[in-house]
Amino acid sequence: MEVDVVDTDRDHVSYPDLVSHVKRAQASGLPGGSFKHPLTRTTNAQTIRDNRQKACGDAPSIQGKSCDEYPIATSKQGLSSGGTRRTFSGCDLPNIPSGSGPKGASACMINRDDNSAQGGLNTQFFRSQRMLDGDPFQIRIS
């Protein structure tokens, strides 16, 4: 199953901060961009909390922004599965190094509306596709 967390309307990108973060995170080697290296859904509330806390628990308070983690918290590939946290230039997260590889997670301060939209899109996708715990999926930029 594919979740399109980003909509494109001709040349207009609906969620530019989210698009930028997901593209950079996938380009750094994190899974989820293809079914060759998918993400796996988790419904375990503790794993989801751990993924969010480990990636964004110390994020600064910046008006209009919130911390986005990739892989998404509702995947088994988040920081609760191991690896290190990374970020990118312009993500407003000081003292976190950049990095690459298939383990770990990326954190980035993005537009709060982009981040909220992603959560809603993921929830709609999981429900409409009847995604169960352990089901593989990919996050595709469309």
Rank of each mutant, 00 (worst) to 15 (best):
A105N: 02
G99M: 09
S142T: 12
C91Q: 09
Q118A: 13
R130M: 13
R24W: 07
E69L: 04
S20V: 02
M109N: 04
R24A: 11
G120L: 08
F126N: 03
N111L: 00
A107M: 00
S89L: 13
V6P: 01
I62M: 02
G32P: 06
V22H: 02
Y15L: 10
D17T: 05
S14R: 14
Y70G: 00
T74V: 10
K36M: 13
I110K: 01
N44W: 06
D113Q: 08
S116I: 10
P16N: 10
D58Q: 11
P97D: 11
G64I: 11
P31D: 10
R140T: 14
A107K: 00
M1N: 12
V6F: 08
P38D: 04
D68R: 00
V5E: 09
I141D: 06
N122K: 08
A105L: 05
S20T: 11
F88V: 06
P136N: 11
R127K: 15
T87P: 03
A73R: 00
Q124G: 12
C67N: 01
T47W: 13
H12G: 05
R52L: 09
P71T: 07
G33Q: 08
N51Q: 10
M1H: 14
R41E: 07
L39R: 01
N122Y: 13
T47L: 11
L121M: 13
P136T: 10
C108G: 04
L39F: 02
G104Y: 05
C108V: 03
K103T: 11
G57Q: 06
P16A: 08
I141M: 12
Y70R: 00
G90S: 10
S106H: 05
S14W: 14
A55G: 05
T47D: 14
H37S: 14
G90Q: 09
I72E: 00
S80E: 07
L18M: 09
T123K: 12
G104V: 06
S80Y: 05
S128Y: 12
Y70A: 00
D17V: 02
T43W: 13
N51C: 06
R112T: 06
R49W: 14
Q118G: 09
D133H: 14
Q53C: 08
R112C: 04
G101A: 10
P16H: 02
P136M: 08
F35W: 13
A27G: 08
A55S: 14
I139P: 00
S14F: 12
Y70K: 01
A45K: 12
A25Q: 01
S14V: 15
G64V: 06
T43Q: 11
G82L: 09
K36W: 14
G120P: 03
H21N: 09
F35Q: 12
F125R: 06
K36H: 11
S128P: 04
R86P: 08
R112S: 08
G90E: 11
L93C: 09
T40I: 15
Q129A: 15
I62G: 05
K76R: 09
D114W: 01
R112M: 08
K76T: 10
K23P: 02
